[in-house]
Write a protein that binds this DNA or RNA. Structure first.
Lengths: 129, 129
DNA sequence: ATGGCTGCAAACAGTTTGCATGCCC
DNA sequence: GGGCATGCAAACTGTTTGCAGCCAT
């Protein structure tokens, strides 16, 4: 198997991780770009995307590939459900909700090897009501 | 409230609906475009998108806004779960699975007005294993 | 000096939209 | 003729990639 490359802990990567873990919101890549740019004005959007991918592969952050186009990112890795506003798109945690365990046998009828499952609530957030 | 426009039943719209309902797969817009093009060689991709939107708003088809980029469309409207191959992206029905009823109170802590929820299994399909 | 990383810009994919024209009621 | 629909092409959005140069090991 291919050994993974030795990663460096660049300021860009550090600050991206720090800002993502320091927020309750689940920012998109470009929202995060705007936040990080305050401290690193010369950072590029491409770097944000590249680092988010590295961090997600590392298991340090979670990529939320929910409905509605843009991917969002979550500094909290432990599994929990989300609720998404169908109007403005913001995503919040549902901490009280513990997701049902995936039923790994469910894919057998289709020949699938089940690896996971996702649950997502949708609704209208307080702001948009 | 705005009255909705009087829709016409054009051949394009008819055949898109017919082809979508006649398949078990959950085609993307451009996959459907390729299928419909056999019978209507001059149809445009934009028309496919526009009609899929009209049909979805009509409740005649369902738009599956799952993870993984491309939207997919489903001629079966009754609620059921899906399993998606993380490798090739194909989507299959999970007919045995009846989705848990959405818990409408779940959003109260966040001030959300819950309108629905989605469940999606992921795995590797038989072909990609 | 090797190889990961950066900023920048261009490329890319999926989707939407503007426009001139066509066709049905 | 009012208005929905079409084909075409251009625009737009989110994301990825190629490249030259930089910096840590």
């Amino acid at each position: 198997m291919p050994t993974q490359p030795k990663r460096r802990n660049t300021p860009q990567r550090q600050i991206i991780l720090e800002k993502l873990c320091g927020t309750q919101s689940h920012p998109t890549a470009s929202e995060l770009y705007d936040i990080v740019k305050i401290q690193l004005p010369r950072i590029s959007l491409g770097t944000v995307y590249r680092n988010l991918e590295v961090l997600a592969n590392n298991g340090q952050i979670a990529k939320l590939d929910l409905a509605g186009g843009e991917a969002r990112f979550d500094g909290t890795v432990s599994p929990h459900c989300h609720i998404r506003c169908t109007d403005c798109g913001i995503v919040r945690d549902l901490p009280a909700m513990n997701p049902r365990e995936p039923d790994l046998t469910i894919g057998q009828t289709n020949g699938f090897l089940v690896s996971g499952f996702r649950m997502e609530y949708t609704g209208i957030c307080a702001n948009c009501q």
